[in-house]
Write a protein that binds this DNA or RNA. Structure first.
Length: 320
RNA sequence: AAAGUGCGAACA
């Protein structure tokens, strides 16, 4: 069951939720860990009902299992169900409280988010960070800053989230100052800064951050591809996408979407279609509706209306 | 091997 958990997660990360479920169903010696992993996979796919069904079928459950299902409802913006679980779970821990803070915030309910924060028995670093992020999410940037200032300690997440908060506020200067004022900068910090610069239209400065960052990860590459794709620099985007793979960072659904958008800007139908096939065959990435629509868009613009319609019909999604 | 907080999205 342990190796199946790993496989299940790998499939889920690439968006293959059905395949992940097939793996789960094939396991004869299911345990609480793999069951919880399946619930998490459904949570990430935005399928709380399926998560519930797995939960109900499990014989053994622990606090992680309950938390995981709660998170599935919270992320799907079904707070009444999440609250109900929270109230009835046999064991509640500090992670559960943090989940509720974020869940309420993502539903625009700052009062309940704050109430959870104030009610929890102890303020972990994650709880502080969740509360600050709650304010940022709801556009209360002053309160986010105040929460940040009130923190007894700060970790990488606290700082990076604050950089993002400044960026969202249009206050990129403060964000840059904070990046250089914080004790340690990691890849995620640089990524946040790069994205903030790109969003402000400073593509060249974003690229310089990318080139200079001492640590990078797959998201760094994905972000730079996105920078080019968003600004219509298709060739550069496609080039960086290829470089990402060459550097050993496998593309995920987000990176592939940016790659496809870059292809759309180039406008060559055969290359775009080849990319669409390659993302599935070479990277094992399952196309989301967004990926399909991107290709459909290009086919339509290029006058291939019939092919566009055919593709829509093969989509495993309901077209709007 | 499993849960919460921060960085990358294409949609009108």
């Amino acid at each position: 069951a342990a190796s199946c958990t790993v496989m299940l997660q790998a499939l889920s990360d690439r968006g293959h939720i059905t395949a992940a479920r097939d793996v789960y169903d094939s396991i004869t010696d299911k345990n609480v860990v793999v069951g919880t992993a399946m619930i998490t996979a459904y949570s990430q796919a935005g399928m709380p009902t399926h998560a519930q069904e797995v939960f109900d079928s499990m014989e053994e459950k622990n606090v992680l299992t309950w938390s995981s299902l709660m998170s599935a409802y919270a992320q799907a913006r079904q707070m009444p169900q999440a609250e109900n679980l929270f109230q009835h779970m046999p064991e509640r821990n500090l992670v559960s409280w943090s989940t509720m803070i974020s869940g309420f915030a993502e539903n625009g309910d700052l009062e309940n988010a704050r109430c959870c924060f104030d009610s929890m028995p102890e303020h972990t670093q994650a709880a502080w960070n969740a509360m600050a992020a709650a304010y940022t999410f709801c556009g209360h940037l002053e309160d986010a800053k105040e929460t940040f200032d009130d923190m007894p300690d700060r970790d990488q997440i606290s700082y990076t989230a604050m950089v993002q908060s400044y960026a969202q506020n249009g206050n990129i200067g403060e964000g840059i100052s904070l990046v250089y004022a914080m004790p340690h900068r990691d890849a995620k910090t640089w990524n946040a800064l790069m994205a903030a610069l790109a969003q402000k239209g400073h593509l060249d400065r974003a690229r310089r951050v990318f080139d200079a960052m001492p640590e990078s990860n797959g998201v760094s590459w994905s972000a730079i591809v996105s920078c080019y794709a968003q600004t219509g620099r298709g060739e550069s985007g496609v080039w960086m996408f290829a470089a990402m793979a060459a550097e050993g960072f496998p593309a995920d659904q987000v990176a592939c979407l940016s790659g496809l958008v870059a292809q759309t800007h180039i406008g060559r139908v055969p290359q775009c279609c080849a990319f669409f096939r390659s993302m599935q065959q070479d990277f094992g990435v399952a196309p989301l509706a967004e990926h399909f629509l991107c290709v459909v868009d290009l086919l339509g613009k290029a006058g291939h209306l019939e092919r566009a319609e055919e593709l829509v019909e093969t989509m495993p999604y309901v077209p709007h």
